[in-house]
């Protein structure tokens, strides 16, 4: 099993959700996040003053998947979230040792 984590632009959340549904993904966790990458934020003008905003708002999506579909899920997220401009985000995957469904106690693939 794998945990796929994606940091994307907030307005791309709906696109990514439908792409994941299309891949048969039945559950995911979404949280608001903020951060910066190589571009180090951006400048904003407010009330005549210029500021550097280094923490840009992002959305973090976490999905638990079976090893067999993991690469396909990553591809689906990337193609749905891509705009080609700076700040599109990152996607990464890590191995997961155990997963348990709290309601039933099911373990492993059955719990996903």
């Amino acid at each position: 099993m794998k945990l796929v984590t994606a940091i994307i632009k907030p307005f791309k959340l709906e696109d990514v959700k439908s792409a994941l549904e299309g891949k048969g993904i039945t559950g995911l966790t979404v949280s608001e996040a903020s951060g910066y990458g190589r571009q180090k934020g951006h400048t904003e003008v407010y009330r005549g003053a210029e500021y550097t905003v280094d923490l840009v708002p992002k959305v973090r999506i976490e999905v638990l998947v079976d090893d067999a579909v993991a690469d396909g899920v990553i591809d689906a997220i990337v193609s749905a979230a891509q705009t080609g401009k700076i700040g599109d985000g990152k996607v990464w995957m890590v191995p997961v040792d155990a997963v348990v469904r709290v309601r039933t106690g099911e373990r492993g693939i059955d719990a996903i």
Binding site: A49, Y51, V53
Partner: peptide, 10 residues
Amino acid sequence: RVGFGKTPMK
């Protein structure tokens, strides 16, 4: 204030 002119303080 601490951070005046650096952070936006919106």
